[in-house]
Nucleic acid binder design. Structure first.
Lengths: 161, 161
DNA sequence: ATTGAAAGGTTCTCAGA
DNA sequence: TCTGAGAACCTTTCAAT
């Protein structure tokens, strides 16, 4: 086989970490075919470049925030960025996406109760500058959370010349 | 102050790990007031119980999947679970949410190109059993991804009697 | 940019409470 | 269920390539 390109080594490292975020650099090194030090330097570089990050995903219920809500938000013309900034500044909101379609923004929040969510929606979301229309979706269940494509393309070693 | 309850110690550990997913058990132990071994056993128990998990979040673009898409899906009456199962089985789909509202399901996928996304949408999504209607939202930007509420309630120690 | 080896720190195991 | 000490393992540093 031809040696993997540098970026393919980087991607192999990240794919391995997606499979197991807590494996050691020693284990990674054995899998991608580098020394422990080389893997460690690549991981640090990739983190600094923002190519991936380590995260802890809590169970919102266990943390006391069982009410999982998505808000679809339509902004007044030209007001989308301003609206996004306001949403980003709200601690109740965990995720903010700029999207195409009828709605311009999707925001996700976790609340301690449906009552807290309602209060947030009526008193804080409803008062945002530039908001034209919004819809609320309650998330009943997270049925999947996995990047299965990270397991693809594990080997390009079977390529014939 | 009264001693923290056992579940509050668990939550403190998880909140600390949300702040820094890679800190050592020794560092955690100092912050939550337990020995390293006690913290390690709690972390293992919480992981086994599914109260949180460690994850690596890649930059989809760096991994060669720059096209980030949300699908809103309306199911035929009674077909939602069947539809969710089919979506969960698709490797292109990373997240599947069961939600309330006009649409029953929100699914998120990452694609190598808009052409691949279009092919997926027309040939795979369109053929799902029980699908009534769907809408496609392209995600242009992720403006926020953080659980700021994990920093709240750090102390219940100031409570007067 | 990578390797290999020594030093330092973390994790794991186990005995004791 | 927790603590503390020792062994095993991992990470960090550094000289060399």
């Amino acid at each position: 086989m031809a040696s993997k390109s540098s970026i393919e080594k980087d991607r192999s490292i990240i794919r391995e970490l997606i499979r197991d975020a807590r494996q050691t650099n020693v284990a990674l090194a054995a899998k991608v075919g580098l020394s422990e030090g080389a893997v460690r330097r690549r991981v640090e570089r990739l983190l600094a470049e923002g190519q991936f990050h380590f995260a802890v995903i809590p169970s919102p219920s266990f943390m006391g925030r069982p009410v999982h809500t998505m808000f679809e938000i339509q902004s007044a013309p030209g007001a989308t960025e301003q609206l996004i900034e306001q949403l980003v500044a709200m601690p109740e909101i965990s995720y903010v996406y700029h999207v195409t379609g009828q709605f311009d923004i999707v925001a996700v929040g976790y609340f301690t109760s449906s009552n807290e969510m309602r209060t947030f929606w009526t008193e804080r979301l409803g008062n945002l500058d530039g908001l034209m229309e919004s819809r609320t979706l309650m998330v009943l269940r997270v049925a999947k959370r996995a990047h299965e494509w990270a397991r693809e393309m594990a080997t390009d070693e079977a390529d014939p010349d």
